[in-house]
Nucleic acid binder design. Structure first.
Lengths: 408, 408
DNA sequence: GAGATTTACGCTACCTCCTTGCATAAATCA
DNA sequence: TGATTTATGCAAGGAGGTAGCGTAAATCTC
């Protein structure tokens, strides 16, 4: 169930994509129960009849399944509500209980490790941050991250073994076994087997992915391009840049997660960005670089030619590379993310868009990411939720359930 | 069921990827029957016990399902065979009947239309070719293609309404509605709605796809890279070049099928190929250009510096562009296909590989396509098989069943 | 060649789950 | 207070899957 299972499978056993597992009445019940649960998950509260029409199951079956789900703790009965048409017996409203499971999103960044605990609808319950000043070694970084995990779990009152799903974001290439293949900017990070490192702490498999490839999930979830099918997401972070590629709604990893290394590719011209003063800001401390970027933005908005030409030449290089990539990928959106895009506001995006309008396919739209600095953690939470195993999981007991009031 | 249905869906209803449809006993039976059928499809012949262990169903259930499948005509009972261990009652062997369905692969190429009829295992039963000399207009080309369809169906003794699945290959961008958005090299072809054109002739929806995107399916099926997960497939045809991108085992289309237009992309340098004398050969007639290419190959193999430099400069441009793309896609293979790669043998591939070894990621392997001129038709047949609806289809009646002996 | 052994087949009994349909419950409206 | 409307609870019936036993059809042994 960890990574690397669905790769390199021969897709040509036969026709369409139905399941291949044997179905018995129990499996049927399980599948139908999950269907009901999903229907409730997607809505605020639903009556039996509403669930029946939404799922295609008979009302009787829905009724029986709800009895089970309520007994297990997945579902709460909201006291009969007034009702729409005004008359008739009011229907009982059933609601999914997001509190009965906790997932973790872990963002290991250069200067800090951030751990967010969220409920099953992805609402953040608590965020723990452990700063990582002075370029620490591998062991120190891992220990600090574990402290952040412990703090987050303590805050929401959940033991590690009860966590429903975990996703870890890291800079560098994450291979199909959940280890970092190449990461040059963090000490001793190349070769670290993150999935193995964290696996013993939890009862569920630990998912590990490159940070840009996770941030793009947040963009699809609660960002500028919800539910988009194909897009390119650029993480402009200064020295540490990356790309998230989404195709057919799914993030694409390539062989051992190596996809999207556009800054290593000769021929796209994006390696020229390294020389840009804007990229150079990445070397500064977070507060400092943000101030610098804001200063540039303000100067440019006042019409200062030096600031404008700085942004323009940056946009030139970016637009050239992204135009070429757009012919290859035919994405619906190109999204500019990372703190640099965040700090430069719409200035950069509009300028890149103007330049791409001439050279890229006409259907490609340029967007600025609407996500703030927590894009990567939110993406990790999204990935954790996507991997949460409804059928295997058991809801947390009432006394163990965290409430959103507890944490931050 | 045609194209364009699974696009742009929000992927974040909840967790993993189970089905969302209500399951009743009948659906369960249908799914289990399909599971049994698939097991038989993947093997030559199987006993009840073998099917039971392969599928996870009880032997009794397998037995009952086989009774149905045999009655419907899907399955044949091979007379009890000697048996492995030597003793014990010999098991009945059940075999999937590939003859009970016919699929069509249609390749509309510049100089001809080719229609191949195949059985459900993809064995070609008959191939009909209608030449298209003198750059005909749209109507003429469509009429000629219909003639080829009629001939192929006559040869295998099947009426159009009985065809189980159809896939059409065409040059140009095929949008999500099965129409050609842009195709400049064939008269009046831009805007032709191929799915609609052919739909009335058949009882099943007609799948339409760009020819390079279909050829790559043949490569995965019976070519140089069977079952590969990620690869880039180049169709070098002279004037009409294209690319097929496979990611996670699935061909990638992009917005309205526009993905892979690497020759329109400034910045990759591949537009420079247009100037190459090798590409120029595409303007000649098929026999002529093949002779010319073979002549170049022979001269190069004898060490002729002019021929070698011609191939080298071609390989240079190709390798530069493909190296850049390899950083972006991280494919396992880059495959050179099309008649040009076919004609130049391993010469081109080894030279491209040597140049890419320096600039591309180390895991990328360069391969020459092992498919001949029928790559596109075979890919169309593969696509048609992939879309064949087992559960909806009814096996052909015995008197209508084509036999491989009939056709070519 | 008859009986033992081995493996496969056919079938009955039973279980789970889904569906239909009707009687009952709980609200509003006249 | 009774009619109307909508929701709930429950009994009966049907479809499908599984377990397990007796029988069938081979080979092996003496």
């Amino acid at each position: 169930m960890a990574q690397g299972d669905m790769r390199d499978r021969p897709r040509h056993a036969g026709a369409g994509d139905r399941q291949m597992t044997a179905l018995d009445p129990r499996a049927m019940r399980l599948a139908n129960a999950e269907t009901v649960l999903r229907a409730l998950y997607g809505a605020d509260a639903l009556s039996q009849a509403a669930i029946a029409t939404a799922t295609g199951l008979s009302r009787r079956t829905v009724e029986l399944i709800l009895v089970d789900l309520e007994a297990e703790g997945w579902v709460r009965v909201r006291s009969t509500e007034p009702h729409a048409s005004g008359r008739g017996r009011p229907a009982r409203q059933y609601a999914f209980r997001s509190e009965v499971g906790v997932v973790l999103g872990i963002d290991i960044a250069h200067d800090r490790s951030t751990v967010a605990a969220a409920d099953l609808r992805g609402r953040t319950l608590h965020t723990a941050v452990v700063p990582m000043p002075g370029e620490p070694e591998r062991a120190e970084r891992l220990a600090g991250t574990r402290r952040a995990v412990a703090e987050a779990l303590r805050a929401v009152g959940v033991r590690p073994g009860q966590v429903g799903s975990v996703s870890v974001a890291t800079p560098g290439n994450v291979n199909d076994k959940g280890a970092v293949d190449v990461e040059l900017s963090m000490h001793g990070w190349t070769g670290v087997r993150l999935a193995e490192e964290f696996a013993p702490d939890f009862a569920v498999p630990v998912h590990v992915e490159n940070n840009a490839k996770l941030a793009v999930l947040a963009e699809l979830w609660e960002g500028a391009t919800p539910g988009a099918d194909h897009l390119l997401w650029l993480m402009l972070e200064g020295q540490y840049n990356g790309m998230g590629i989404v195709m057919d709604g799914v993030p694409y990893r390539g062989v051992d997660g190596a996809a999207g290394e556009i800054f290593w590719a000769k021929g796209l011209g994006l390696d020229a960005l390294t020389a840009s003063p804007l990229i150079g800001l990445g070397r500064l401390e977070p507060e400092e670089r943000r101030a610098e970027a804001t200063a540039i933005l303000e100067r440019a908005e006042r019409g200062d030619p030096a600031a404008l030409s700085e942004v323009d030449s940056f946009a030139d290089v970016l637009a050239r590379g992204l135009s070429a990539l757009s012919w290859v990928f035919a994405p619906r959106y190109v999204v500019l993310g990372g703190w640099l895009a965040w700090a430069l506001g719409d200035l950069l995006a509009t300028r890149v868009a103007a330049r791409m309008a001439r050279n890229a396919p006409p259907f490609v739209a340029v967007r600025r990411s609407t996500l703030g600095p927590d894009a990567v953690v939110r993406g990790a939470i999204r990935a954790a939720l996507d991997r949460y195993e409804w059928t295997a999981a058991r809801p947390l007991a009432p006394e163990r359930r965290p409430s959103p009031v507890d944490g931050g």
